[in-house]
C-alpha cells in the first residue's frame, strides 16, 4: 500500500511540474495565477496522502491552512488588478 501511495505522490508532484509549463508560458497573467491555484489543490492532495503514509495527522492541519489561504493570493491578484481598471 505504501508503495502504491508513493507512486500516487510522484504522479501528483509530476502534474505540478507539468503545470509549471503553463506558468512559464502564460500568455496572460490570469493563466499563470490559475495554474498556481491548481498547484495549491495538488499540494493539499499530496499532504492528505502524506499524512496517511507517514501516519501523522498534523499534516492535515497544514493541508487545511493551504485550503483556507489558497484564495488569498488569488484575491490579492484580482483585487489589485481591478483597482487599476476602474
Amino acid at each position: 500500500m505504501t508503495t502504491f501511495l508513493g507512486g500516487v505522490l510522484i504522479v501528483l508532484l509530476s502534474s505540478i511540474l507539468a503545470g509549471l509549463v503553463r506558468v512559464l508560458r502564460g500568455p496572460r497573467m490570469a493563466d499563470r495565477m490559475m495554474a498556481a491555484q491548481l498547484f495549491g489543490t495538488s499540494a493539499v492532495a499530496i499532504l492528505i496522502i502524506l499524512s496517511r503514509v507517514t501516519d501523522s495527522p498534523a499534516f492535515l492541519d497544514v493541508a487545511m491552512v493551504f485550503a483556507l489561504l489558497a484564495a488569498v493570493t488569488l484575491v490579492a491578484f484580482v483585487a489589485l488588478a481591478l483597482r487599476r481598471v476602474r
Binding site: 505540478i16 509549471l20 506558468v23 512559464l24 502564460g26 497573467m29 499563470r32 495565477m33 495554474a35 498556481a36 498547484f39 495549491g40 499540494a43 499530496i46 499532504l47 502524506l50 507517514t54 501523522s56 498534523a58 499534516f59 492541519d61 497544514v62 493551504f66 493570493t73
Partner: peptide, 24 residues
Amino acid sequence: FTAIVVFIVFGLLSALAWARLAAP
C-alpha cells in the same frame, strides 16, 4: 510577475519538503 508566481510555488513545495522532514 512570472517570477513572483514561481516564487509562490517554490514556497508551496518547500512547505511540502518540511512536512516530509517531520517538521509540521
